[in-house]
Simulated assay, not measured.
Amino acid sequence: MGAREAARGPRPGPPRPARTGLHAPDCEEAPQGAPLLDADRALDTAEHPGTPLCTLCGAAQELAPRLRGRQASAGPP
């Protein structure tokens, strides 16, 4: 999953935890009909506690380091 590639996640609207988690676009575990999210939207959604990242398709391996980088650049609360 590249920086510009989308992830499959929850329906559009305000970011919220995904019930089924975030998956790579080609993941067999992604729910049928799940919308494609751009990278920023996927990261916004993944920031919410309780949003699972799929470990089978590589979404967790791709998004987790980017989340850590985002949180570090935001600085302390």
Rank of each mutant, 00 (worst) to 15 (best):
G33T: 08
R41W: 03
E47R: 14
G2Y: 00
R66S: 07
Q61A: 15
T55C: 07
D26P: 01
P14Y: 00
P25S: 08
P52I: 03
R16L: 01
G50H: 00
Q71A: 15
Q32L: 11
R11D: 14
H23Q: 10
A7R: 11
P12V: 01
Q71W: 14
R19T: 10
A72E: 14
A39T: 05
R4T: 11
A74V: 07
D44I: 03
A59E: 04
R41M: 11
G21N: 01
A42W: 06
G58W: 11
P10A: 11
R68K: 13
A34D: 03
E28M: 11
G75K: 08
P49K: 09
L22K: 10
T55H: 10
Q32F: 09
A3W: 13
H48I: 12
C57W: 06
A24Q: 04
A30D: 03
E62C: 09
P15W: 05
E28F: 02
E28R: 15
G33A: 00
E5W: 08
L37D: 07
T20D: 13
R66K: 15
S73V: 15
Q61Y: 11
L36T: 01
R11M: 12
P14H: 07
Q61W: 13
H48C: 02
P10Q: 06
G58Y: 07
G50R: 04
A72I: 14
R70F: 11
A24W: 08
E62V: 14
L63K: 08
L63N: 08
P17Q: 02
T55Q: 11
D26G: 09
E29A: 14
E29F: 10
A59D: 00
L43I: 12
A46N: 02
L36V: 04
R66N: 06
A24N: 01
R16N: 01
Q32I: 12
A34I: 09
S73A: 15
G50V: 08
T45P: 10
L37N: 03
A18P: 09
A24S: 11
A74D: 09
C57Q: 01
G9F: 08
P15T: 00
L36N: 02
G13S: 10
L53D: 03
C27S: 12
R4N: 06
R19L: 13
P35N: 04
P25K: 00
A6H: 10
T55L: 06
T51D: 04
D38S: 06
A30Y: 00
P65S: 05
E62W: 14
